[in-house]
Amino acid sequence: MADLVAAGPGTTGSADLTVLPGVVDHHVHLGLVDRDLFAGSPVVEVHDLGWVPEQIAAWASAPPTGVRVRYAGRFHTAPGGYPTGRSWAPVEAVRPIADAEDARAAAHVAAAQGASRIKIVLHAGMPLLGDAELDALVYAAHEAGLPAVVHAEGPGQVARAVAAGADMLAHAPWTERVPDAVLAAGARMTWISTLAIHGPAERAVAIDNVRRFLAAGGRVVHGTDLGNGPAPAGVVADEIRALGEAGLAGEELLAAVLAPEDGSGPRLAAPGPRPRDAEELVKWLETSVRVEAEAP
């Protein structure tokens, strides 16, 4: 199958193959995984959500074969806020924010360093950004034409991200049952799943939040938080299965996990019909190989 040529975005009838875009992982930390394991895997694009800007920019310019790397650069957090002091977080990856003016400056520096989104941290277990600093970071991200991605952990932090106008949550919320009114107000947002990193109780909370967020009209995309735990670089089957538990199936599931049908980059081919649910998608990806699309 390695030399197959795809006839288009659907099924190649002569070979009984389905051809689809590759997997996008919207939340990774490349400094904490073996990056070379991505090469040749079904994953064709990764979004790094927190690392030393100079290092991640170098990896993005020379990525694993067949993988596009997009990145946020530093974690923007309160002085002493998460992930300050964590053994896995280099000091240079954390940007403490002193005040609103400093927040605006920091966001514009990140954009100048090649960031494609601004990572903001609201972690209630450690010092928190004030509303003025949070609002300034979101505003400056939008000024730079970038989405604001918030790590919201702890009671009330999702509501703060929604009120500030943030575009994305780095994790489906797992520390509280998000109130229906907050879900409705934030239905314009996108959540990155990261469901499989949790133990049973937190996972159940996150899946319940995702189900209700989807019902409110929100959008959820696939992300694993690779580097958080022992999962190797590549497809994390349990994350896809968790998306299925949360109610995603059919074309909605494919849209959450895979690159857009009209996007560029490597495509995947595997025997069998178009996957209809999470288990079928996992099995399809296990047998898939990369193929080059036929020129029009």
Rank of each mutant, 00 (worst) to 15 (best):
T175Q: 11
M126H: 11
G154I: 02
E101A: 10
P64A: 05
P83I: 07
D167Y: 05
W174G: 00
I118P: 03
A148C: 03
P63C: 10
A103M: 04
V162L: 09
V44K: 00
G165L: 13
W59Q: 08
A172I: 13
V69C: 04
L37V: 07
Y139E: 12
G50N: 07
Q55C: 08
A89I: 10
I97W: 09
A170E: 12
A140T: 06
P79D: 01
P90V: 10
A172C: 12
A164M: 12
R68Y: 00
R74D: 02
T84I: 00
A163D: 09
I118V: 09
D36E: 13
V91D: 13
R70Q: 12
D180L: 12
Y139I: 01
E92W: 04
H142G: 15
V94P: 04
S41A: 11
G81D: 12
V162Q: 12
V91E: 13
V94H: 03
V178D: 05
S87D: 13
V138M: 11
A93T: 04
V52W: 11
S116G: 13
R95T: 04
A57E: 02
H123M: 08
W88S: 07
E92Y: 10
S87M: 07
G50C: 03
P53N: 05
G80W: 11
A103E: 05
V109I: 09
H151V: 00
H76R: 01
H142I: 03
E92A: 15
P53W: 09
G50Y: 12
L37Y: 00
Q113M: 05
Q113E: 15
L32T: 03
A62T: 13
R177Q: 03
L137V: 05
M168L: 15
Y71L: 07
H108S: 14
G40S: 07
A89F: 08
A100V: 08
Q55Y: 12
A163R: 15
D102E: 04
T84W: 04
A144C: 10
A163S: 06
T175D: 13
V178N: 11
V67H: 04
A124R: 09
P127W: 01
A172D: 05
R35S: 14
R35G: 10
P63E: 06
A144Y: 07
D131C: 08
Y82P: 00
I56D: 06
E143T: 14
V46Q: 02
L49S: 03
G50E: 00
A132V: 00
E133D: 11
R74L: 08
A72P: 04
A72C: 15
L146I: 10
A98W: 11
R86M: 15
Q113S: 08
R95S: 09
P64F: 00
A100N: 09
H76G: 01
D135K: 06
V91R: 14
Q55V: 14
A58L: 13
V178Q: 11
V94G: 02
R104G: 09
R95H: 15
P155L: 05
V67M: 06
A62H: 15
P147R: 01
F75Y: 15
S116W: 06
E92P: 02
A172N: 03
A164G: 09
K119H: 08
G80K: 03
R35T: 12
A172G: 10
P53C: 11
D131R: 14
W174P: 00
Y82F: 15
G125C: 02
A89C: 11
H151L: 13
G50R: 14
S61C: 02
A132W: 01
L122Y: 08
